[in-house]
Design a protein around this nucleic acid. Structure first.
Lengths: 225, 225
DNA sequence: GTGTGTGAATGTTTTCACAGCG
DNA sequence: CGCTGTGAAAACATTCACACAC
């Protein structure tokens, strides 16, 4: 009676490359961050137990996550901190620097240029763009602000792979379209609006209000104390 | 769906409580944001289809998410935009303003005070704290910077429910301990470090580097440019 | 003993597919 | 018809539990 339309046949599905769950990729950077701290504290080895305690997650989850990529631990001992750090950096493609373009040099954009944590952690902001003629040509944070029309050429020249968007909400969609046309495949969006984009482009959002709005639901209930 | 009214003994409450998956709560604010945009564009109604297209998610997921809280749509028509907005605001506890304390008034802290998007969206930064005697007493963004020792009293006085933390990494753990002791149950952490905290405290992180590190994994593979 | 790596079991989330309403 | 609301099914993610290595 019920027949299925257009499903992927089971065999083709099985033959597909080992797909690593996105949730796992999302967690790896926190492992990296925790391990960096451990290394600074001169910890030589760490168990999934200990790492789990620091990150408030189960040891099993950490072991399972890592097992997608290889066997990095030693039984009875744990993981060598600096070796695991190296492995994770390589897995995440962080054994190199990445060039980043900043689009939008208003208040938020300037704060991002000022923020000194990007470069030491491997993300170099190598170009800044705006569409305001008043700003173009000015120097901010050691960068000459360029016309957004130059984006395509600069992306090619400087090997830019990631764009940070910090323009007003009303301009976000057109800027994203432009950035995507220039071949950028990863976007960090500071503007508090959703945008349309091809599914092969990665997007992450930084919106403090959104983050707080996910917490108020839980605050609501405990307000009777 | 039965809404709880009036007082219930803890047992009945526990047995009745419909536990709503956290992923659902995490998505509601994006619905809110999309609907706000639709309302500004004078859209009267929206279908799960249309909303899904804007947010790049399936209509079924949106319908299912909303169904945890009630029946807000009309068959054959869709959802009334402003009515659904109202419902979501109420669900998330956003039918009121929230008072926020900023801890740490360095570069990042100042940028947060400057950022004009918090207040219009319902989050009032009503107090700022630092431990640096040079800063205490100075005025930034209309707020007199207070000694962090005054936090407990101010939290009580001003009904502060959320803390934004923007202190250097090395101070994060002690500041979080302090904030928790003061009765704060929700924290937005801008410092790029993990911290220990009781499981009944909500924490969200803003770390642009972490966000970018979750994308480089995917960039790695397509680097044939 | 201690702690990894991993199939198998369990739990959770998403998607399907359709009854029923406007 | 078109679209919601929703049980049921499928897909996905986490946790368990134990063989095995140090």
């Amino acid at each position: 009676m019920v027949f299925l339309r257009g499903r992927l046949d089971p065999k083709a599905r099985t033959e597909m490359a080992t797909h690593i769950p996105e949730v796992v990729i999302l967690r790896l950077p926190s492992y990296l961050r925790a391990l960096t701290l451990l290394e600074e504290g001169n910890a030589g080895v760490v168990s999934s137990q200990e790492l789990g305690a620091r990150l408030q997650m189960t040891p099993a989850q950490i072991r399972k996550d890592l097992s997608y990529f290889g066997k990095f631990g030693k039984q009875g001992k744990g993981y060598n901190v600096s070796q695991l750090l190296g492995e994770l950096r390589q897995i995440l493609g962080l054994d190199r620097d990445w060039s980043v373009a900043l689009i939008g040099v208003g208040r938020v954009g300037k704060a991002i240029l000022d923020y000194g944590d990007l470069a030491p952690r491997g993300f170099q902001v190598v170009a800044a763009f705006d569409r305001d003629p008043e700003l173009i040509g000015k120097v901010v944070g050691g960068l000459v602000i360029q016309d957004i029309a130059d984006l395509a050429a600069t992306v090619k020249d400087r090997g830019i792979a990631i764009a940070i968007i910090a323009v007003p909400p009303s301009q976000v969609q057109q800027v994203i379209d432009c950035v995507v046309r220039c071949g950028i495949k990863a976007i960090l969006n500071y503007a508090p609006v959703a945008a349309q984009l091809p599914k092969d482009i990665r997007l992450r959002e930084i919106d403090p209000v959104l983050a707080m709005q996910t917490m108020t639901y839980y605050l609501k209930t405990l307000s009777s104390s």
